[in-house]
């Protein structure tokens, strides 16, 4: 990895958790309000209340990535062109909308447009952070791979998180199934596509590692065979945990398994964290430059 990337791993995961949870629970509240406004409020309030602290935690953790955290206030100065500036803007806007939403939660006429706006901003936040990595042109991140990963995590967290919080709020299991079954199915589908993309990417890159050109020597993306194998192992392990978590929720909602949905939620969280760790491994920093620096430094120090 380039530097210690754990703040970015946790920041992206938590931001996607907050966005996914908010979007799906907001949708569930709209659907449930057709039955009963009170039922809609009581079933979704707890989950929606959690999304604010989650995005705050995501933003705080991202500060640990900065070399100069006290200059973080400058980070929206390049909004016209920088996707990172946009990500920070949307994170802040999501938090602001969430606060206003919480204040006016019981007023349906104000809360509804606020929910829609916050959900949209949460989604734009995920798209902005996808653009940061996708636009680098690095083999592991360019194209649709990053969008699939980040939007996929948002979907998985949203569907599993909604099922967990709706059940925890005491909503009837049959009703939870009606609300979350199709999002859970979509999550399984996205995860299957993600696995195909991961395996295809690794096999394609493996075939390229024998290239010996000046361009490859100069490229900041050095995906050697050992790194690719390690990435594949970690990404697949994370994928298995995520799939297991989603399937367990589906079995629970079908009445075939009885357990705490918190376990599924935690499995998905760990799975997605592992997958994101693999994602950041694909920065592919070469060891060669480090060797250069070490070698020349040793020579200068006389040892």
């Amino acid at each position: 990895m380039l530097r210690k990337e754990w703040p970015l791993i946790t920041n992206t995961i938590l931001a996607q958790l907050a966005a996914g949870l908010f979007i799906f629970l907001a949708w569930d509240r709209i659907v449930l309000s057709r039955e009963s406004l009170q039922l809609a409020l009581t079933s979704t309030a707890q989950g929606l209340a959690w999304t604010g602290p989650v995005i705050v935690l995501a933003m705080l953790l991202s500060l640990f990535h900065l070399g100069k955290p006290f200059r973080a206030y400058r980070a929206m100065a390049n909004l016209p062109v920088s996707w990172l500036s946009w990500e920070i803007f949307f994170s802040g806007a999501f938090l602001l909308l969430w606060i206003i939403f919480m204040v006016f939660e019981s007023s349906d006429s104000i809360a509804l447009p606020l929910m829609v706006a916050a959900g949209l901003v949460g989604l734009l936040n995920v798209i902005s952070m996808s653009n940061i990595y996708s636009s680098t042109g690095r083999p592991g991140w360019k194209g649709t791979g990053t969008y699939l990963d980040f939007l996929g995590s948002t979907l998985v967290f949203g569907s599993v998180g909604a099922a967990f919080f709706l059940s925890a709020a005491g909503l009837d299991a049959a009703m939870v199934k009606v609300l979350t079954y199709f999002p859970l199915l979509a999550s399984v589908l996205i995860l299957v596509i993600e696995l195909i993309v991961i395996l295809h990417f690794v096999s394609t890159q493996m075939a390229l590692t024998d290239d010996f050109s000046l361009d490859q020597l100069a490229s900041s993306s050095d995906l050697n065979e050992a790194l690719l194998k390690k990435y594949q192992n970690i990404a697949v392990a994370g994928w298995l945990l995520s799939v297991l978590g989603v399937l367990m929720v589906m079995l629970y909602l079908s009445g075939l398994l009885q357990f705490s949905l918190l376990l599924s939620f935690l499995l998905v969280l760990i799975g997605e964290l592992l997958g994101r760790y693999g994602f950041f491994m694909l920065v592919g920093e070469s060891e060669e430059a480090s060797q250069y620096i070490t070698a020349v430094s040793h020579a200068r120090h006389g040892n």
């Binding site: 380039l2 070399g67 200059r71 973080a72 400058r74 990172l84 680098t136 100069a218 900041s220 920065v283």
Partner: peptide, 13 residues
């Protein structure tokens, strides 16, 4: 701010 975005964006090693 030391965010490293420029390092990620740079294609050169």
């Amino acid at each position: 701010v030391g965010c490293g975005s420029c390092i990620l964006a740079c294609p050169y090693k």
